[in-house]
Design a protein around this nucleic acid. Structure first.
Lengths: 242, 242
DNA sequence: GCAAAAGTGTTTTAGCTACACCCATGT
DNA sequence: ACATGGGTGTAGCTAAAACACTTTTGC
């Protein structure tokens, strides 16, 4: 069968971002309020349209820069999946979106919303209670990105992307506890992280925050895979795209 | 900034498939010969255009059905990534592709090529030697899909997707050895697989193929994640999209 | 000194590795 | 009988879990 032109549907492509960070011990997500129809004034993931000459990754990075004040920070950005249900967006031409998982350190400024729409950090566990829920299929996109983040904490070093350039082992442990929602044994975590090959490297400096013994400061190492992996107690049914 | 229509580029979407199977102890890949420009008569991944009303998964399944004779078989199909470099395809409108990893049991018929183009199984390690290499960015797409398959063998039960509905433990072990390119200790593998929770379930039947003691036959269990994971000896730098 | 947080040691247990060994079938 | 592949047992090692303990700071 020869492919005929009428078999192809032209679409517009968007990049939608699940931008995660940790604020005050809570896993938070950046949401915007939609300024236009469809789903006007509903909460949605930040995102935008692919422009001529750019890759979808460049679209995602551009939107990320517009929504947050991160510039050259040690950011993690990865594709999660393509969402293409024909009825996911009523606009014409059809809108298909590529979702991205972005992980950011806690930003001092809540959000520098340069656009008209209000951008804000929302605790992930409060998302269900948003009036009307998320726009489009963004609830499903969020769930998949969260699952990806949770599994990737196990086998990769992305946990450091939640931290400032210099961080303590306890801050890194908090990442696991907050994202997984479980307690992690402090002494064993310390050993495991410092023993792992190039996960974290000591800076020599100390933290000196508040009471208690000052913690040593570390920065992220060059390792991308975590060997051996960090395993969470109960088996997580959280392997995405499978 | 308000999004203007001229900022959006319309694109056509394709699904490209990395269909893997094991034939005669070799990891093989389904390739087609392109019938049209661009890259006419070059080897390429099978794929096709998104049609109106279908999801990209349906596009992939439709192409898979056209290229192979699998019908309701226990097939594994998952998205790997979106490839959107502006110069990856010279056609207009711009062509962006979503790649899929498909894992199939060894099919008795090599390929039922219903289309004009010749489809054939090619050992993965021979792909580099193809005259001219693969069309488009398919070499990169293949590399990413292979990395995904190799890592997913560790933490998931997708290895059973390479096997017929009923299989022996040795056949399952061959999957790991062929995909990873390493030897796996037979006795330990047997224990690990049969001990894992619902990875494989015995059927009670025996194989009786050739000489030697007949092996018990198993079928795939319902577990999707493998706990504890199967680890390959040396750390693989093979975590994709990270 | 006391509370609080960081970091180290120790015991127990689970899982993996590397084999040796036995079992069931074809020739 | 013996070759061939399937399956089990076992000793030694490695790593993880649980928890006691020491160290360094602020008050």
């Amino acid at each position: 069968m020869v492919t005929r032109l009428r078999d192809r549907e032209v679409v517009t492509l968007t990049a939608d971002l699940v931008i995660l960070t940790i604020r005050e011990g809570e896993l938070c997500l950046l949401l915007v309020e939609r300024a236009n129809e469809p789903f006007k004034s509903r909460s949605a993931l930040p995102g935008g349209f692919l422009r001529a000459g750019e890759t979808i990754e460049e679209t995602a990075l551009r939107e990320l820069a517009e929504e947050t004040s991160l510039d050259g920070l040690p950011l993690h950005l990865e594709q999660v999946g393509l969402y293409s249900a024909p009825d996911r967006d009523p606009r014409e031409p059809r809108v298909v979106t590529c979702s991205f998982l972005a992980i950011a350190p806690n930003l001092p400024v809540p959000v520098a919303g340069s656009d008209a729409h209000a951008a804000r950090w929302v605790p992930v566990r409060d998302v269900d209670r948003l009036t009307g829920g998320l726009a489009f299929d963004h609830a499903a996109i969020l769930a998949d990105a969260l699952a990806r983040a949770r599994t990737k904490l196990q086998y990769t070093t992305i946990a450091t992307a939640f931290c400032a350039p210099e961080f303590t082992i306890s801050e890194l442990r908090e990442v696991y506890e907050v994202v997984w929602g479980v307690e992690v044994d402090r002494p064993n975590f310390h050993r495991k992280v410092t023993d792992a090959d190039d996960f974290v490297v000591p800076t020599g400096k100390k933290s000196s925050k508040g009471t208690g013994r000052p913690a040593l400061l570390y920065r992220a190492g060059t390792a991308r895979v975590l060997h051996p992996p960090m395993v969470l107690p109960a088996a997580p049914e959280s392997v995405v795209d499978g």
